[in-house]
Nucleic acid binder design. Sequence first.
DNA 1: CTGTTAGCGCTTTCAA
DNA 2: TTGAAAGCGCTAACAG
Lengths: 321, 321
Amino acid sequence: MAKKVTISDIAKMAGVSKSTVSRYLNNGYISEKKSAIISQLIRDTGFKSNFFASRLKTKYSRLIGIVLPRIDSYAVGQMLAGITQILNEQSYQAIIITSDLDHEKEIRAIHQFNEQGVDAIIVISIGITEKQIEIVHQYSTPIVFAGQYDKRLSCIKFNDKKAGSILGEYLRQKGFKTCVYLGVPDSDKAVGIERRNGFIKAFKNKVILIHTDFSFEQAYAQGDKIMSYTPSVVVGATDNIALGFLKYLHQNKINVPQKIALAGFGGYSMGEVSSPSLTSIFFNFKALGRKIAFFTFKRLSGETFSSYFEDDFKLLIREST
Amino acid sequence: MAKKVTISDIAKMAGVSKSTVSRYLNNGYISEKKSAIISQLIRDTGFKSNFFASRLKTKYSRLIGIVLPRIDSYAVGQMLAGITQILNEQSYQAIIITSDLDHEKEIRAIHQFNEQGVDAIIVISIGITEKQIEIVHQYSTPIVFAGQYDKRLSCIKFNDKKAGSILGEYLRQKGFKTCVYLGVPDSDKAVGIERRNGFIKAFKNKVILIHTDFSFEQAYAQGDKIMSYTPSVVVGATDNIALGFLKYLHQNKINVPQKIALAGFGGYSMGEVSSPSLTSIFFNFKALGRKIAFFTFKRLSGETFSSYFEDDFKLLIREST
DNA sequence: CTGTTAGCGCTTTCAA
DNA sequence: TTGAAAGCGCTAACAG
């Protein structure tokens, strides 16, 4: 079972001092002979340096705290996969707390990570508030925000405006004249405002704005209202929203794309298996996750605040347009 | 920035001993007066107990290591959401490593967690090997396996056999006579063997078995072969597999469910938005995640090995049958 | 109810 | 190149 082999035990057995063993473990300022014997002893006993004792002395933990709005979402899962991939490669580890889309919890999580002594914190944010900015400046731990932007913080996110404009441009060139855009509230600056503005500016023609939440159901429920504007194309701020409306179209036997075209943002696999498959802007969330990790390491190595906008997305033209 | 306020500082300021402050922080065996003054001081100074020092003394870290095959999957995301929900409620925290579906990495992760001194380990496994069993018995840290079963370990998973039989029973009663079952390799005991056997036993009629992997693409590619058996119903071992074949049916203008019926396992939202929507066995992965956490706490509180089979799934009858 | 006293296991000067 | 010694910040007997 749990063999309580400590550094002293090894030292005793090897006939050296604890410091020597410690040196072997760290810098390695040690003679060949002793090194060999210690090495052997460690192997035999199965000794493992006590994580907490070591962290108590040195200042860093090789732990990165990650605050997530929720974990059961495709985008978050992909990002997390990207982040942990890079973290693990560098022998860092992720420790996660979910905020459940609650600003207060997000803040509490940041406090908690600080208390735990993580080396850095990554916050996949649902919106940056003044209070958060205050907290970031009050702690010395590097904090990186992802998904949202504020110039006073270190942020990394997709260039939502550009994403919106790519889709807008494409649909304009396709000759669509009237669009209903299913947007989410402005409280989500990235998805709510930037994506939409980019789209509207590039589409140039008529856009009717209808607000909805992020759910499949609410988009479905707005079907009648949407159709009352007789749009030639409907765009959902996310694929999920677009698919909610697609369900309505199916049930009302309205043909896509013959009667009406449809597009979304996300490029989730769901949009690939629907019929018709959904035209969408694919965001490479996993790649973003990797960038987030790199960005965090930069901050860790002393680089100062700055922001980054990722352009790794592309237009997937599929059957729905 | 990082104010290095320690428990001694607080003690000095409050005119008490460190132990008293420590007691305030923990058991609270302390007078009202001192409690009040310490409480105030902590608030003022922004003192936070040093995580590592405290963990060095007590044996517990309140950290649970979780080994995942991959994070960017719906099922895993849901489970993780359920697990972390309960963990966080109990002030425990999740620390994750991904195994990337690699047995070696899974084992390394278990070792690593042990070295780090987590209180318990949860392994969402892709298949239990002899080597793993050996390791579990060599460590004293409680380890809980999820998703797979071996009687020598603490396991928790869905009752796949029963899930299979529910769908088999339903399709038999519906009057289908010939079924193609798209199965995955036997190396995944739960999904590959149990689910399939439960199905076959309950369906009673003719079942043609075709092997495929977990991907949408491979299921799609097997379309011609599947149709050559002229089945009246096709069942995918996962929804994803079923949807891959659905894509084939769409492209070949074969009507579902008029010409052929289709069903899967999973109950993912993808099967809800497809058209027709997919009949499926819904597994409540989030609920399973919560159970996993509870189960882990039981082991933590000294209960011994045992296994648990979750029945929280149900038949979703939708348009495809 | 509270203070004193020992460490937890490790790292890190400092001198040798 | 090595060892002695001094803690990191906290908790937990023990005695009062």
